[in-house]
Design a protein around this nucleic acid. Structure first.
Length: 505
RNA sequence: GGAGCGUUGGUCAAGGGGUUAAGACACCUCCCUUUCACGGAGGAAUCACGGGUUCGAUUCCCGUACGCUCUACCA
């Protein structure tokens, strides 16, 4: 590649960032970094009616959490600022005017109401070569009529004049050669009545001005690609056009169709990267982050949804992804999102990440549950012990809170039916034995219990369940003797005594 | 309706003219573990359908079906 690779992610700040959006960012980022290029974040906020307070900050926060930091953005600045399209409003008009001058665009004076009426009246109505002569625009009107309307400040839009008969083709990095016939696309609005550009104009002007070399976006954009290709041809030359790639969609797990927030609500999994509350409706959606996903896992899971490196490897660090990513290994077909698999990735990452990097987020979760952690060293030991059985971060609280406080409930009902004097005697004696144990260490504790069981002629298996319940409150958690070792002599004995009292009531 | 894109087990997918059609998730069975996990062993697909091309197609070509996306002064 001769030019420095420059890619952009261009979201509109209208709500939370969903899986598909994050994956688009990710593929952009990986591609750019693979080639040592730049990753630009551009905010496409040309529709003022859809602007949502806080959405832009949310996007930055998401990218930060995922570790996908832009090289240039409204926040980070850069040589092609401003990076917010609303602040670039004046720039677009001159290009619209150039198109006008060259006969590739025209003024249209039809009101939205008139067009609505047309759509009702004529089936499959399109503002195109077939109908534009019958509408109010600078093609159908004489020059003086047009001039008069403009002079009277009659609101207008500028539309592209799609050629009636032209093959529009381009090469998509994922799909190969793609063809469209120009007559199939209508005369898209380029500049709105409020003077703002539509996406179609803004995207090509900004990609040109910001020297974008590769443009990746969701597959839903494919049908409007011919408009963009034509604009490139008219304005900047096809030879300067970025290479396109239209990414496959992320589909809902059941049935078909694009994954939406509703599917997440319905099926019980997040769809947004982080918590998002719509400020207008107060509609809340939980994010992957708050659900207890690690950013490493979230990114990994997204990367292999529609891409793989051809090997059997599934777990990738960001560094490996950057090294191995290539657009020609991206799948063409959409992929159904599988939440179970997503959790598996998190589980894998919890298992392989050193405890040191889990410490902080998990500690926070404990504290949120009112469990203070003062002994960091013990905390680390506990996490190491339980991490194999934690899929999501909050599982740590469930799996390990009993290390730091008395179990909230003790499953007496499971002990009682098989409880007898013999066992009671046994545990009384175990307490005495444990009081004297010199080496408080799990092997030693296990040995003592088993020897004593033999002496009492009780199968040690019958003792394990009650002992576990005494220490953790239920039938779960890591090895009992490991637990005893960590919580210590005093606490172990106290818990045995406590349960003994309850059982003997 | 039109245009475009897509279609390998339930899901993610590798592969690509001749293979026992990888692997992972989920599921089932078993082993390990006197809890639950982790770990280990095993189980299931003829590649949407129909035509070609070919000695031979899941793999190439053409149709059909099905699905999706778009069809706004939204992105």
């Amino acid at each position: 590649m001769d030019k420095k690779v420059r890619v952009r992610f261009a979201p509109s700040p209208t709500g939370g960032l969903h899986l598909g959006g994050v994956r688009t960012v990710l593929f952009n980022y990986l591609f750019a970094k693979h080639f040592g290029g730049d990753f630009i974040l551009r905010i496409e906020d040309t529709d003022q009616t859809r602007f949502v307070e806080g959405a832009e900050d949310y996007i930055f926060e998401c990218l930060k959490w995922c570790g996908l930091t832009p090289d240039e953005s409204p926040l980070h600045g850069g040589p092609y600022a401003p990076y917010r399209q609303s602040e670039r409003k004046e720039i677009y008009r001159q290009y619209a005017e150039q198109l006008l001058k060259d006969g590739h665009a025209y003024y249209a004076f039809d009101t939205p109401e008139e067009l609505d009426a047309k759509r009702k009246e004529i089936p499959n109505f399109q503002y195109n070569h077939q109908h534009r002569l019958a509408l109010r625009n600078s093609v159908s009107l004489t020059e003086t009529e047009t001039a008069k309307l403009l002079e009277k400040n009659v609101p207008y839009v500028i539309r592209i004049k799609m050629p009636d008969n032209e093959e529009v083709r381009f090469t998509d990095m994922i799909r190969g050669e793609v063809n469209f016939h120009s007559s199939q696309t209508d005369d898209k609005v380029l500049l709105k009545a409020d003077g703002m550009p539509t996406y179609h104009l803004a995207v090509v002007v900004d990609d040109y001005l910001m020297k974008i070399t590769h443009a990746f976006r969701g597959e839903e954009w494919l049908p409007s690609a011919p408009v963009h290709v034509l604009l490139w041809k008219y304005l900047f030359g096809l030879e300067n056009m970025p290479h396109w790639a239209h990414l496959p969609l992320i589909l809902k797990p059941d049935g078909n169709g694009k994954l939406s927030k509703r599917d997440g609500d319905r099926l019980g999994f997040p769809v947004f990267a982080m918590n998002w509350t719509d400020p207008r409706t107060n509609d809340f959606a939980q994010g992957f982050r708050e659900r207890g996903f690690l950013p490493e896992a979230f990114v990994n899971m997204l990367a292999v949804l529609g891409w793989n490196d051809g090997s059997e490897q599934e777990i990738f660090t960001m560094t490996e992804l950057i090294q191995k990513f290539s657009m020609d290994r991206v799948h063409k077909g959409g992929a159904k999102f599988d939440y179970e698999k997503a959790k598996w990735f998190n589980h894998e990452w919890i298992k392989r990440l050193p405890v040191s990097s889990l410490l902080l987020p998990v500690k926070r979760l404990f504290e949120e549950q009112g469990i203070a952690i003062d002994d960091e060293e013990m905390f680390a030991k506990v996490l190491e012990l339980v991490k194999d059985r934690c899929t999501l971060l909050p599982d740590f609280v469930q799996q390990a809170s009993f290390f730091f406080k008395l179990p909230e409930t003790i499953d007496i009902a499971s002990i009682k039916p098989k409880w007898d004097d013999k066992k009671n005697q046994f545990f009384m004696e175990l307490i005495r034995a444990y009081e004297l144990t010199t080496l408080w260490q799990h092997d030693e504790l296990e040995k003592e219990l088993k020897e004593m069981a033999a002496a009492h002629q009780i199968k040690s298996g019958e003792l394990m369940a009650p002992f576990r319940i005494m220490l953790v409150g239920g039938k779960f958690g890591p090895g009992v003797f490991d637990i005893a070792e960590i919580i210590g002599r005093e606490e172990t004995i106290a818990r045995i005594k406590h349960t003994l009292q309850l059982v003997n009531l």
